[in-house]
Amino acid sequence: MNAALPIRQVEKPWGKDVLPAPFKAPEGKRIGEIWFEPPAALPDLLVKYIFTSEKLSVQVHPSDAQTLAKGIGRQGKEECWFILAAEPGATLGIGFNAPISEEDMREAALDGSIEGLMTWHEVVPGDFFYIPANTVHAIGIGVSLIEVQQNSDITYRLYDYGRPRELHLEEGMAVSKGEVYDLAKWHKRVAAHATETLVDGPLFLLDQIEGRPSAEIAGRYPDALLVIPREGTVRVAGEAIGPGGCGLAAALEDVEFAENGVCLLARACAV
């Protein structure tokens, strides 16, 4: 079995026809997302690259508790974004400038003013944001990022800049929090070669490491994990995987790390 996860390119109206290396968009296609198919050993975690030439829709995701209460299983979605590249002035919309009621949020979604009520955070490479379920958010123009998320396809669009796509106001309003995003709690600025824990549960773990992981970080990954090279090539069960790839390792011992390489390590948590 190959260690490298299969890649799926996803067309999006806000995607790009020219992608950063090593990716290449098919001629005439606008690719917004590169998905790595979740392996059977780690089915609850999805890793993506996202590339934007236009703003994504204003959207929100439910929590596990909310989807379980609806009888559709554990389909909540929390996610995080690691900024790889950003054009000057590129932003992410996360939360609101001031608390907003459900009624006012609904009206703002209908008339398009919701975009102006959100907080748009200017970003640079190395910015990291965790997006809890129920957080209203949107990715702006000119951003390339890695997204690690719960493996769920439930997205409620609240506003889409007039694009002819379905909106989900009723479902979205039922789970949206009209709150200011807690930047101090959910944001980090990560140095290019830093070894740092980015997400410490409760749904998944995510660490950036340079070289081999420390004993402390290694102890967080006793079983199967995903390895996402950012700089340098790693070998997973003997198979070379470079930046732009994602590998499944049955155990950390199966991974050979480049001495000066930088990787992300990820796994889901049992809940």
Rank of each mutant, 00 (worst) to 15 (best):
S63Q: 11
G95S: 11
H137I: 10
I83V: 15
V148E: 01
Q75M: 14
V124K: 14
H61I: 02
D104C: 00
F129H: 09
V123C: 07
S144W: 07
H137A: 12
W81C: 10
A109L: 04
E78R: 14
E122N: 04
M118N: 10
F82H: 10
A69R: 08
I141D: 11
P132C: 06
E107D: 10
I131L: 15
A85D: 14
P125G: 02
V136G: 08
Q75V: 03
I146F: 03
G112R: 03
E103Y: 00
A108L: 04
L92T: 11
P125A: 01
L84D: 01
E87T: 13
T119E: 14
F128A: 09
I94A: 12
E102P: 00
A65I: 03
P132W: 00
W81F: 10
S101R: 02
Q149A: 14
E87F: 00
E147C: 06
A86D: 09
D127Y: 09
L145P: 04
H61L: 04
G126E: 05
D127A: 13
A138N: 07
W81D: 08
I100L: 14
E107A: 15
I114E: 10
G126V: 03
G112Y: 03
I94E: 08
L92V: 15
L145G: 07
Q66S: 07
R106D: 03
A86C: 09
V136P: 08
Q75S: 13
G95D: 06
V143T: 09
I131E: 00
S113M: 06
G76P: 09
L117R: 15
M105Y: 00
A108R: 09
G112A: 10
I100N: 00
V148I: 15
P99N: 10
L117N: 07
D127G: 05
S101V: 06
T135P: 07
E78F: 00
G142P: 11
D111H: 10
E79M: 10
C80L: 07
I131H: 02
I72K: 01
G142R: 13
G73S: 12
K77G: 01
N134G: 03
G89R: 11
A65G: 04
M118F: 12
E103F: 03
S144T: 14
G126P: 06
V136I: 15
I141S: 09
G140W: 04
E115L: 13
A90T: 02
N97R: 15
I131G: 05
I131K: 03
T135C: 13
N97G: 15
S113I: 05
T91H: 06
G76L: 02
G126M: 05
A109C: 15
D127M: 13
A108C: 05
F96C: 12
C80D: 06
G76R: 04
L145K: 08
G71V: 11
A98P: 00
L110N: 05
E102K: 14
E79I: 12
A65E: 15
L92I: 15
E78G: 09
G142Y: 10
M105G: 10
W81Q: 08
W120Y: 06
P62Q: 01
G116Q: 14
I146E: 04
S113G: 11
A69H: 02
G142K: 12
G89Q: 12
P62S: 01
Q66H: 07
I94C: 08
F129M: 13
W120E: 11
T67C: 03
V148N: 00
N97Q: 15
G116K: 14
T119F: 01
A108W: 00
A138Y: 05
L84Y: 02
A133I: 05
